[in-house]
Design a protein around this nucleic acid. Structure first.
Length: 448
RNA sequence: GGUCCCAUCGUCCAGCGGUCUAGGACACCGCCCUUUCAAGGCGGCGACACGAGUUCGAACCUCGUUGGGACCGCCA
């Protein structure tokens, strides 16, 4: 704890790509812990590798975090009491401390680089909030492929600090007292502990998170399809769902609750309850979580979110009133697991064009068309354009003519939606309105 | 190859020595509802990796085996 006893946790991505699922998961748990404890969540950009880092990705990562609803209290864009928050701007600090190690005789120069001498015979005990105590001997902290002890480069030949060194200096300088990161960093921790020890600094609390694996149980990567959080957005997943789903990978709020929002999560989050076992990213579960969030979403908000997806399908939702579109989405109910599916499945409310593209009524022969024409002629004359009355009318007509209801419900559905499935067809017809209904029926020759 | 870590249904989580013939969720399969499909309701399938201990008693503790993962860059 720092002097205030408050948690200071950070997410320290390297700007070499968009925010990916693994990074989002790490950021999320840091955020949860900071929010849960009333602490501070810091964003630090680890761009010490000029070759691979780009300013553009820094923005992309920040956009990704914002999209997920993970707000930070200190960072390169908003400053804070420990600025600068970009490693590329902290060079003097790294040099200063490297000199200190050089003076103490704990490091040496070699070929322009500064190298930390790994001591032997030191027992390291890392107390991980999730994994428990892990003991390791200093000579095993940094090893070459051949098994020999390898001293740790802290300043590269080009003058830039290495990751293991910069993290320690930054975390110390920024009073970071909780280092929460992926399990792939466990093996780096002893190296970093050696550095803390050399400087005589207090060590932060460590907490390593379980990895997220693909279906093949391998570390999630591009091979597994979408990796950046924005790709999931394009696919039709809500930020709330990604947040919820990611939080469920390695943790659960207890009580069987699986669908929750950021507030609930940040109120009940407990680092000690985080799982150790790597978790497989299961798209089926994500779909379910997304559908659940879609179900509880306010129609007005939902309309706003679906609109761009309709546009992407080449439709023009702006030709309709907000109320009409909202009504259409309410009718759609829980159909569609993603916003993209929901937009596709409801396209016929926005325009007749996709209906025509899907359906041509060619399978309806003369002998079926004639009775349909009779029915629809009467149907269009219904006094009140109301779903319940329509259904009652249709049922009566069918009973009187000895026809099953589906004989007219199915063709009607096809003509209205171009699909074999839809919400209750009379409700669809009611919402589409008499004019549109007539237009579609006539187009298919179901009405004179 | 070396070091470290992990191990409950296909998947995600509960379980933290007795209430476990192991619970929930997703997926899957039935049935109900129904003009269709979702949703909803009901039911089914399905796991403590294995072997030794410790203990009156082990999914929970210890050790071993097996399996899986991560890391071993002057990348982060």
């Amino acid at each position: 704890m720092d002097k205030d006893g408050k948690v200071r946790a950070r997410f320290a991505p390297s700007p070499t790509g968009a925010l990916h699922i693994g990074g989002a998961h790490t950021a999320l748990f840091n955020w949860l812990w900071a929010r849960r404890t009333g602490g501070t969540f810091i964003l630090r950009i680890e761009d010490s590798d000029a070759e691979r880092s780009t300013a553009g990705y820094e923005d992309t990562i920040m956009d990704g975090l914002r999209w997920l609803g993970l707000d930070w209290d200190e960072g390169p864009d908003k400053g804070g009491g420990y600025a600068p928050y970009r490693q590329s701007e902290r060079m003097s600090v790294y040099r200063k401390y490297a000199d200190e190690l050089l003076e103490k005789g704990l490091a040496y120069r070699d070929d322009g680089a500064v190298i930390f001498k790994v001591p032997s015979g030191v027992s390291l005990l890392m107390r991980d909030a999730i994994y428990g105590d892990i003991k390791i001997q200093s000579e095993k902290a940094s090893v070459s492929q051949d098994g020999s002890v390898k001293d740790i480069v802290i300043i590269k030949r080009d003058g830039m600090p290495t990751y293991n060194y910069a993290v320690v200096v930054d975390d110390h300088e920024m009073d970071i007292n909780w280092v929460i990161r992926g399990e792939d960093h466990i093996s780096n921790t002893p190296k970093q502990m050696l550095l803390y020890r050399a400087f005589g600094w207090d060590m932060p609390n460590f907490a390593h998170l379980p990895m997220i694996l693909g279906k093949d149980k391998k570390k999630l990567s591009k091979r597994h399809g979408a990796t950046s959080v924005f790709e999931y957005g394009d696919l039709g997943y809500l930020p709330d769902s990604i947040f919820n789903f990611l939080a469920l990978l390695g943790w659960s709020p207890g009580g069987g609750a699986e669908i929750f929002d950021r507030n609930v999560a940040s109120e009940s989050f407990e680092l000690s309850k985080v799982t150790k076992k790597p978790a497989v990213f299961d798209i089926d579960k994500l779909n379910f979580v997304n559908q659940e969030h879609l179900k509880i979403m306010d129609p007005a908000v939902k309309k706003k979110i679906i609109e761009p997806f309709w546009v992407k399908l080449g439709l023009s939702p702006e030709k309709h009133s907000d109320q009409y579109l909202m009504d259409a989405l309410v009718l759609m109910g829980a159909r569609g697991r993603t916003t993209r599916e929901l937009a596709e499945f409801s396209d016929y409310f926005v325009s007749f064009a996709p209906v025509k593209a899907r359906y041509d009524a060619s399978e309806v022969g003369f002998e079926q068309r004639e009775p349909l024409k009779k029915f629809f002629a009467a149907f269009m004359g219904i006094p009140n354009w109301d779903a319940e009355e329509m259904e009652a009318f249709a049922r009566n007509w069918c009973r009187a003519n000895g026809t099953p209801l589906k004989e007219i419900a199915l063709p009607l559905r096809w003509a209205m939606t171009g699909r074999k499935v839809s919400p209750g067809i009379f409700e669809v017809v009611q919402l589409l309105g008499p004019d549109e209904c007539q237009t579609r029926l006539k187009y298919y020759g179901f009405l004179e």
